[in-house]
Write a protein that binds this DNA or RNA. Structure first.
Lengths: 187, 187
DNA sequence: TTGCAAGGCTAAGGGCATTAGCTTTTGAGC
DNA sequence: GCTCAAAAGCTAATGCCCTTAGCCTTGCAA
């Protein structure tokens, strides 16, 4: 029996992700998710506590996807090669899912799961920088600078904040080179 | 008569700005603005076309304030001195009004006024870089890199995205130095 | 086979944005 | 000072959305 696949929290997040990718965050409504999953709105509460929690789960999912992709981008590489690969993987993910990225708040303060997922992503960055022999606070600062650059660019690009997209690849290459030079100077 | 100051679009934006500063974007609701201005909700429509337009006006206001402050920060300075002053002024503004900054979308595509205000802000950056003798696309790239850094940091800091705020001043100083070194290399 | 828990549904309440249509105020021109 | 029209306010009402309550069905485990 049970022709129709039963719902689960994961499937709800799937639908929410589709919705965000197609129409942006403001379209993420329980009513729309319910329609997409073929269920009445209140039924979603059997799988998700609230719209707020769904947003949190969405953030966790995105952070996990990013962590996974950055990890495989970096594996087998070291030094400048690894850092450049990480930065390009970051931008590539955001270009594939711009609305999804723009949807994810940088503010994981109220969501423990999301905070944990964010920490894991940062650990990938930290580990990548370890091949430069950085330790302690020096490594923390270097990770922050990296984050500022990749997120700054991604945030502006994903929301169409750059005027014309002309030469954006060049701009990003310059940022990568700037950061690599910076690392060289610090070590 | 008329003890109570009559409402105007500017006063509506004032109230909205207060609301955002105090409680964040999600608290920006026409009902709340109406309460703060001592008026019934539908009366706001005599001054503002919709909640969306109010958000746009808010963005314009913030961009104008930033432009003004950055302009006076930069006036009378040149070269590295000017760039450093601009970057520090940017961060200072965002630290004073973190929620306000986080509220402003990077996406001015649907709002012509906001786009124009953004262009003016970028012109201040461009003008500041002109003392490096940059022209055309080189100047555009340099402006973009600057924007990525200041916005990236501001975006993360304003939404509490850095874990502990420990050493954030140092991190920012390093970013400033990184960018100045980068400019030196490009010229 | 029985019974219970999981998962679905309808009904209903409350908040918000927005529109319609009315009333009051105000100020410009006479 | 008076008139009257536009500006600015209000109440009523609609529709969408989140959320809760309470009920019904299904499927599985004992």
């Amino acid at each position: 029996m049970n022709v129709r696949q039963r719902l689960s929290p994961a499937r709800v997040v799937d639908a929410a992700l589709e919705l965000v990718d197609e129409q942006g965050v403001e379209a993420l409504t329980l009513a729309a998710v319910a329609a997409k999953t073929g269920v009445a709105t209140p039924s979603l509460y059997k799988h998700v506590a609230s719209l707020g929690e769904l947003r949190g789960l969405l953030g966790v999912r995105v952070l996990e996807e990013m962590t996974e992709r950055f990890t495989s981008a970096v594996i087998g590489r070291a030094g400048d090669d690894a850092v450049a690969a990480l930065m390009h993987a970051y931008r590539a993910y955001v270009r594939e899912h711009p609305k999804r990225y723009a949807a994810m708040p940088m503010d994981p303060l109220h969501d423990e799961l999301q905070r944990a997922a964010g920490v894991k992503l940062m650990e990938v960055m930290l580990a990548t920088l370890r091949s430069y022999g950085m330790e302690g606070s020096q490594a923390v600062h270097a990770t922050r600078r990296l984050r500022v650059i990749v997120h700054g660019f991604a945030s502006i690009e994903s929301s169409g904040g750059f005027g014309l997209p002309e030469g954006l690849d060049d701009t990003y290459d310059q940022l990568v080179r700037m950061y690599l030079d910076d690392l060289r100077g610090q070590s």
